[in-house]
Each structure stands twice: as structure tokens, then as C-alpha cells.
Amino acid sequence: MQTTDVIDVAHGFALAVAITNAVAGLVSALLWWRVDPRPYAWILIRIGQAAAVGQAAAAGVLAATGLQPKDDLYWLYALLPVAVGFVAEQLRLASAQIVLDHRDLDDAQAVGRLPADQQRSVVLQIVRRELGVMSAAALVIAFLALRALGTV
């Protein structure tokens, strides 16, 4: 593979990660703002995460083939989105406990003892918080991918 071909592959992955995560982040942010979590937002978020993992794997392959980016920060920008996604998942998992603590509920069983309308309120608050976290992460990942695009 020639150097220009390798750089074109790196550009392609970075652009795909930027676009998929920008779309996921913006759609999710809009749904978060409207307090209208929809399943398709999670599909978009997962597609963006998969693209970020693909970019990191491709960066490893490209490094093995001898890619010499114009700036060594490319490696950071190509790999950091996976770390951002991992941290966001941890924050997303903590969202439920934060909401339960805020409402002085011990666990999910305590939510089950609430009236149906209050149960829906708790669940909506948890899902909305999760969506907000993942939306922010997707936008950060899109930014990092654009930086990778500019440094390869």
C-alpha cells in the first residue's frame, strides 16, 4: 500500500467517525432537549461507537503498515474516542443510581412500589440523563475525529 493510500484510509475512517458521531450527538441532544427519548437515538449512538472502535483498529493496522502522520497527535485523536466512549458508558450506568439517590429510593424494587405515573417519571428521568451523557460523548468523539482528520 502506498503512503497516499494509507493516508486516504485514515482520512476515510476519521470522516466516518466524525459524521456518525455528529449525527448521533445532534439527534440525541435534540431528543434530550425535547424530553423525548427514542430508540433510534441509541442505534445512532451505537453506530458512532462502532465507527470509533473501527477507527482505532484501523489506526493500529495503519501504524503497522508504516503510516507517518504529519502530527503524532493523530494517534491520540484516533484512539481517544474509544476511551471517551468507555467513560461515557460508566457515567451512563451511574445515571440510574444518581436519580434514585436524588429521589431517596434505595433500588429498582423501591421504584416498583411507587404509583405507575411516578414510576414512569423516574424511568424517563433516568433515560433522559443517560441520553444526555451519551449525546455529549458523541459530540466530543466527533470533535476528536475531526482533529484526527486534520493531523493525519
Rank of each mutant, 00 (worst) to 15 (best):
A24E: 08
V35I: 12
A22E: 03
G48A: 09
V122P: 05
V84T: 06
Q118I: 05
L79Q: 05
H102Y: 04
R128H: 11
V123S: 09
P39S: 10
P81A: 11
S28H: 01
Q90T: 04
L73T: 14
V87D: 10
A88W: 01
D101W: 02
A24M: 10
P39D: 13
G25E: 08
A108L: 15
A64L: 14
A110N: 03
D104S: 13
D106C: 01
A52L: 07
V99W: 00
R113C: 08
V123K: 08
L67Y: 01
A116Q: 13
R92E: 15
G54N: 08
A50N: 03
G60A: 08
A78C: 07
E130C: 13
V61W: 08
I45D: 02
D101M: 04
Y74Q: 02
Y40M: 13
Q49R: 03
L105M: 11
L114V: 04
R128F: 00
V99T: 03
V82F: 06
W42E: 06
A96C: 04
F86I: 14
A57Q: 06
L44H: 09
R128L: 08
W75D: 01
A110E: 06
H102F: 02
Y77F: 15
R113N: 14
R128D: 12
W75N: 00
A56M: 11
P39F: 02
A96G: 10
L100H: 03
I47F: 12
P37L: 09
G48I: 07
A57T: 11
L31I: 01
A52F: 06
I43P: 00
I126Q: 11
V111R: 00
P81D: 09
L79W: 03
Q49W: 07
Y40W: 14
